[in-house]
Design a protein around this nucleic acid. Sequence first.
DNA 1: ATAGCTACGTGATGTACATCACATTCTAAT
DNA 2: ATTAGAATGTGATGTACATCACGTAGCTAT
Lengths: 191, 191
Amino acid sequence: MEAKEILKEHIAKTASLTDEQFDYFFSHFKLLSYKKGQTVITEGDKVDCEYFVLSGCLKAFFINDDIKMYILQFAMPTWWTSDYNALYNNSRATINIDCITDVEILCLSGADREKLCNEIHQVEHFFRWRTNRGYVASQKRLLSFMNNDARKRYEELLALYPQLYNLVPKHLIAAYLGISRETLSRLYSAH
Amino acid sequence: MEAKEILKEHIAKTASLTDEQFDYFFSHFKLLSYKKGQTVITEGDKVDCEYFVLSGCLKAFFINDDIKMYILQFAMPTWWTSDYNALYNNSRATINIDCITDVEILCLSGADREKLCNEIHQVEHFFRWRTNRGYVASQKRLLSFMNNDARKRYEELLALYPQLYNLVPKHLIAAYLGISRETLSRLYSAH
DNA sequence: ATAGCTACGTGATGTACATCACATTCTAAT
DNA sequence: ATTAGAATGTGATGTACATCACGTAGCTAT
């Protein structure tokens, strides 16, 4: 499927745009291709854009003391990703985003997003609901962190995203769960 | 300050409403008063509303196995609170919200919020940005959970909300930090 | 005032995890 | 095909926390 079709279908689930409105909306996106391992956002960068994933898988992560990596999000097709803290506050990136596989993404600048939200009420409606869902998911993950041990979080993750298990290396899954790769290895060898 | 003034000032930071628009917007809110200890949302309830805090302090919390409490949010004046998962998905509450002190809140139904967002573009703008900020805060807290030990999370919390230390009992602070009250006690007696 | 309840402190012990160390297997580049 | 590096498995040990147990101080209601 074409980039345009993928985005159109995605938006249509939440907002009603006319074809002309959507064409105009879409004209603000830039198509970008990255190879596995390439970096989209690096800590310290100025962050101007957010990204809609067409194909492949990215990770948004934080590195502590140049040693430990914590993964905030695996970004899969039809997901949005960026350093939203930096993007919304016009500050520098505190996280990194790079490509776990080859990737195609659509890029929308923060300035264009605000312009489009202002010009087209339904675009603002779309972004409101997208963030609503992100917020709820983030709260759920926080609760899971407080409430569950590593094994349960691991089982939850696999139930939610079964593709991940084969798509991404296990040490990245560990970094998402907030445990060491050794502990993760013992978790599933024990069962 | 009057309820209406407090809300108006709060909205004005994010959105531009005319006086007539704001009066209309405000007419959809209901003023509610609660005594310390009273419950606003109970697990299993139908959730119809979200709440804007005028005075006092509430807690949004989850209880696991009828034993352990985890606090998702302390809601202070000019903060919004609800079970957003339930409210957005029209499902039953999975968390509880009750009053740590006597409380005054403004209540807005989900149906009215959607109606107002639809009728007044700037209202939708306001709610988009409110959730943007909530999402970023939630991501930051998640990162802090993965990245920091109990002592550092404790120091972070005090730096961010110094009032909390004297306002709420320590076992609630422990429940927010995701540690036992004993561990919290040892944390600050050790320093 | 007294009784009962809630908040809070502190020692002893248990446990889920991290860390370190090293072996093995897989993958990618030349 | 060979080799280097990345990913993975697994034992030994350390540690930050939870849990249990018991104590005291402070509120609140009668």
